[in-house]
Amino acid sequence: MIFLRALLTRLLTMAITLFGVAVVVFFLIRVVPGNPIAMMLPPGATEEDIARLQALYGFDKSLLQQFLIWSGDVLRGDFGTSISLRQPVSELVLGRLPATLELSLFALLIAIALGGLMAFLGTLYRHSAAEAAVDVTTGTALSVPDFLWALVLILLFGVLWPVFSISGRVSPSQAFEFTTDFYIIEAFLRLRFDVVAHLLSRSFMPALALAIPLAAIIAQLLKQSLKETMHLDYVTLARTKGYSETWVILREALPNAVLPTLTLIGVQFTFLIGGTVIIERLFSYEGLGNMAIDAVINRDLPLIQGIVILFAALFTVINLVVDMLYVVLNPKLRHA
């Protein structure tokens, strides 16, 4: 009951947030001086042509009218037509979303693996030089954002020791025919593990750049929770029973220490997705973020709106899922 009411309140705030985002982006990009359809006009277009095109895209109406029409269309799932690419925005955006999602999820997995490993090592060798090394590493990793890590990775593994691809999602020579836009998942389901390996190696650098700061956050928080748990009586009991330290950390301490980290991962995951915008650009990865920067440079208003709304929807949905998961996973809140 409580759960349901919480869900409904959250859905309502989510709707308000998305509406707010729509208002902000709609009016913000219309402050831009200049005619948004100017770049579509062939040289020598007459006044009449301009008026016709403006009417076609609805730019001849008042701002408020434009907003009402646009919101009505959006609610019906129609995001308009891209000015620069001349295709429906919803098609373009949904075609790119899988690439960004795959990259983000890959980065998340790397972050969890790396962060978890660091936290484990830091706990296992606590109060020693090794723990200090873990602290310095995570402190540095956290202080520097994904953009700089990406450049460092490009330099190290793309130029000095070129073992990884630093450009594009798929190699141009890759002959595999994809039927969906979820390349990695599709290749996996069709049991083409060679293609999976190829795709993973191509997105490893951008994913790692996105993962490093998050891995550091996970390592710091999880290590702290683990160390607090290691003092508890039941952990001492497990140790006196003769279990190895590794076993004690992983089987006894971890299940009780992991909840704060899980919540944090949820929140941080949206920041990670936000980071894909510039990371995709750096690695020429054909995702949503790369398309967004092109859309801004080309002043493609319908496309910018569509991409921003989609990102906002993604962020709010993830936050909602995290909040609900927290309620489900936290035994103290379950029967409240």
Partner: peptide, 22 residues
């Protein structure tokens, strides 16, 4: 708080590029 929620739903880099374009 509502404004903060709305702002948090924007990818910051895209927001920055958009503002500079404007």
């Amino acid at each position: 708080s509502r404004l903060v929620d709305i702002w948090m739903a924007f990818p910051p880099v895209l927001f920055a590029i958009l503002l500079i374009a404007v």
